[in-house]
Amino acid sequence: MNKAQTHPTNEKQNQKIATGDRAILPDGAKTVPIYVMGKRYEVPETLTIMKAMEFVGFKFIRGAGCRGGICGACSTVYRKAGDYKLHFGLACQTVVEPNMVLTQIPFYPANRAVYNIEEIEPTAESVYALYPELFRCVACNNCTKACPMDVEVMDYISAIKQGDLAKAAVLSFDCIQCGLCASRCMGELPQYHIAQLVRRIYGKYIQPRAEHLKKRVQEIDSGKYDGIVKALTEMELEELKRRYLESEREPNMALPGEWLPKDQEYL
């Protein structure tokens, strides 16, 4: 993250800029003061933390990724004026609040074990052997409090300690690997890496396989669709467009098995 501009924005700038991705401030839009790493800036009240930081001149070379709340690159920690409580959020998703004091934590060192998922024994003991620090959890719950995705981090760590990998995989499903849990951990656990290993084991060895998927793959392999695929790829563009526009479509919210297309040749 580079700080291209060291001065807080002035009134004149506020008047000419816009919101949205380019931060153009509409007429009459209010600004609020925020503190980025201790320094005060006036920013439009409608912006997310990320846009507000760019608005005042920060340029992200780390700590920004998808800007859609899913990549986990822009973890941010903030406090509100006069409150002891720490708050956590993704900079691209959290709207600024007056007098918030924030810093980004784009990366936090966390122990990541080396393993070959192909050779691993799908048991809780394998997880314990790779991450013995798991047992240093003191159930302080700081991890769950820190999670910007509302994952019950402490609960999935508990589930792993109890040997229930399936439960842990499900509980940690929404994790975006931002690492805020690890940054707050008293036992120095890399929760998110442990959970990822658990989900990998779960996905590869424990989760039930979809039987219909296997059947469909067999059908494809047997050449059932070769003809139609060939016909489609060789089709004139206009004919392809016509077919696309005239194609049948499953109605919204149709219950499984309730609707069937007229052309059932390939079902």
Binding site: V138, A139, M154, D155, I157, S158, K161, M186
Partner: peptide, 25 residues
């Protein structure tokens, strides 16, 4: 229905309360 590890051993220092959090939870 929901529980965490108790910590297995009791905290024996008067200024070590964090290790009481797990069993209390």
């Amino acid at each position: 229905s929901r529980w965490n590890c108790c910590g297995a051993v009791h905290s024996l220092a008067d200024d070590d309360l964090i290790h009481l959090v797990a069993p209390v939870r």
